[in-house]
Design a protein around this nucleic acid. Structure first.
Lengths: 191, 191
DNA sequence: ATGGGCATGTAAGCGGTTACATGATTAT
DNA sequence: ATAATCATGTAACCGCTTACATGCCCAT
């Protein structure tokens, strides 16, 4: 579910084979954002089964044949649907990088027009604000109950985290408001 | 693996039955830090199988019998071993609340002496610093490559996150240095 | 009567990681 | 010699979530 649309987005920008998607993720961000073989190849198979991508097999002299994937029109529609749609409530227990629906989408915001980006960011900002307020209420309760200071600090971690998210979202909103923030998508085959 | 020791720690403080552990987590932090039935009861069974907890069945008039769990001496040793041991490299993709080994341990720092807490926190601080530096290098690379500003922002998210962690850890270290930060553990049966 | 609280569990599924499997090429 | 790079995949496992199952009590 989660990673599939990210892969779809990357292949949409640059028709590529599995290995190059992997390398691209690792190089363009940081090694830890790379994707796992055991997840990458099954994901490509799923996307193909759904009719969202199609492969062209390119035989190699020495290594296994490359599967050059490209996104079908149906895949492109699906990607746009996903990108503009509602993110849903964030799963507080899954705050990993690619698991964070909003952050994942952020990788493809240049394919979305400014107003949609602003709308998504503002909704996310509301969520961060609400979550922060909840945690502050919980912290007040702990404070009044005279609890263990280390447990109080655990909530403080969450409070700081949500504050950081709000600040980051405000920065994103500011950038989205700039006159020439959006770069047109490039389409080049890779590998 | 992960949640098991947290449960062990809670039961060590207050011998309790499953349902009350659940309620306790939800009430003392925030509803989202609650534990799932499908995870709680199997976890208790695992802890029992390992000989770390033992139950006393308390029949109820109207509801199913309560299983009052308490930690065995072996369980207490295991808990101390886990609490003081090395956390290991954080899994960057699992940044959820209970998945974060350091944060999880933080709930039980009052059972650890100040020096151990400081040592753990300083190691964690080093990690946050290192991760932050890595992300900043990656951001520089993106900057030089003239990449999509939204993707640059994704890395910024990580950078801000690690900065937040550093600040929080410094606060924790400051608290740990205070004269009377440590509250003696309470032991009361609950439910 | 309906839903929530109390109290215990089980089963199915999902996303993700780790390890396995293959095999030539190139760099240290 | 050894490891890393390129290039594809499969299998087993793990932690967690969701849904199911039971049943009594109390408040609305």
């Amino acid at each position: 579910m989660s990673i599939d649309h990210a892969i779809l987005g990357f292949v949409l920008e640059q028709p590529a084979h599995g290995y190059s998607v992997k390398k691209w993720l690792e190089s363009s961000f940081s090694s830890e954002f790379g994707i796992n073989d055991g997840q990458l190849y099954p994901a490509l198979a799923r996307l193909e089964a759904r009719g969202w991508i199609k492969k062209r097999v390119v035989p190699q002299r020495r290594s296994p044949a490359k599967h050059l994937w490209r996104v079908t029109p149906a895949g492109e529609r699906e990607f746009q649907r996903w990108l503009g749609g509602d993110v849903g409530e964030p799963d507080a227990r899954a705050e990993g990088f690619w698991k964070q629906a909003f952050l994942q989408r952020c990788a493809f915001f240049r394919h979305l027009d400014r107003d949609d980006v602003r709308a998504l960011a503002e909704r996310e900002l509301e969520r961060a604000t609400r979550r922060g307020a909840e945690l502050e209420r919980a912290a007040d309760r702990l404070e009044r109950a005279g609890s263990d200071p280390y447990r109080r600090l655990m909530l403080d971690y969450g409070i700081r985290y949500q504050r950081m998210r709000r600040e980051w979202l405000l920065e994103l909103l500011a950038r989205a408001a700039e006159p020439r923030g959006v770069v047109p998508p490039t389409k080049q085959a890779v590998g």
